[in-house]
């Protein structure tokens, strides 16, 4: 493979990414647009008379929310993995009776409409007194991801070569040690993928935040959007600016995390 050919692929990759992210570009465009130009026909392809009003509002009001969102996102990832990884291991490799029923329940659990989940959790949280708390919100956000995490991890762990686990057993490793020292490291790709989506769901969650944390002292950035949604009027440049500001740190995290999804994790482990 010669270098020019590789760059040629990069160019195609850039073009594809460009098409994919065009709506994101449009969002950025709107975030800089003055109210009076927002519905100009035909629209401007780039902000002709840019305004920083949206960003000014966001920088003044929203920055503290970013920290909360980060905390909620990472907390949700950690809790999701703690619950989902052992379950996936058991379902994929130990296959207890009732395992299929459990997978089935997980699948159905995801079909419950978010708003019904939120209403159910509201009632429970009120009685437990954890409404408007961050741990409460983190636990609620995990419900977006846990079934997904278990099902995806199960699929990938089922694909782990049998010889690998057999070798561990021959070495005298118990179930827990096999899980911790063999299965988890080998499942790195799937774990990173699951962690990514979990983080994304928690980061962009709106419904749980607004139902369970709307009176809280620490709110995630999605609720910051409410500052610009009045009962009769919405400030779209500020809403879009909030989304842009919220995306920047999270995008950096995504780029870093994606580097950990690499080929041959399983293969390499077999050879060792």
């Amino acid at each position: 493979m010669t270098t020019p050919r590789r760059w040629w692929k990069t160019i195609i990759g850039l073009a594809l990414t460009g098409v994919m992210l065009f709506p994101v570009y449009w969002m950025i465009n709107v975030s800089f647009t003055r109210d009076r130009d927002m519905r100009k026909s035909p629209p401007s392809w780039f902000p002709a008379d840019p305004t920083l009003d949206g960003y000014r509002a966001v920088i003044d009001q929203q920055l503290p929310y970013l920290g909360t969102s980060l905390l909620v996102g990472l907390g949700t990832v950690a809790l999701t993995l703690v619950i989902a990884a052992p379950a996936a291991y058991s379902l994929a490799r130990l296959r207890p009776r009732g395992g299929t029923a459990l997978s089935f329940a997980l699948l159905i659990a995801q079909m419950i409409p978010g708003i019904i989940m939120a209403m159910g959790l509201y009632a429970t949280y009120l009685n437990l007194g954890v409404l408007n708390t961050l741990p409460g919100l983190i636990v609620a956000d995990t419900t977006l991801a846990v079934p997904f995490a278990v099902l995806i991890l199960t699929t990938f762990m089922t694909g782990i070569p049998r010889e690998l686990l057999h070798a561990a057993r021959v070495d005298g490793a118990g179930t827990v040690r096999t899980f911790w020292s063999i299965v988890l490291p080998v499942s790195r790709n799937a774990t990173v993928t699951v962690a990514l989506f979990t983080f994304l769901w928690a980061w962009s969650d709106f419904i749980y935040a607004s139902t369970l944390d709307s009176g809280g002292d620490h709110q995630p950035i999605t609720l910051g959007i409410y500052h610009y949604i009045g009962n009769n009027n919405q400030q779209w440049n500020a809403i879009m600016a909030t989304a842009v500001v919220a995306s920047i740190p999270a995008t950096a995290l995504l780029v870093v995390a994606q580097r950990y999804v690499t080929a041959g994790v399983t293969a390499g482990a077999v050879k060792d």
């Binding site: 590789r6 992210l21 994101v24 809403i239 989304a243 780029v255 994606q258």
Partner: peptide, 25 residues
């Protein structure tokens, strides 16, 4: 290829946006 991991990560950016923002866009 060069930048492949970064571009792949960028494909996920739409998921960072609350649906109210992406659908409105």
């Amino acid at each position: 290829f060069p930048l492949s991991a970064t571009l792949r990560a960028l494909f996920l950016v739409p998921w960072l946006l609350p649906l109210i923002v992406s659908a409105s866009t």
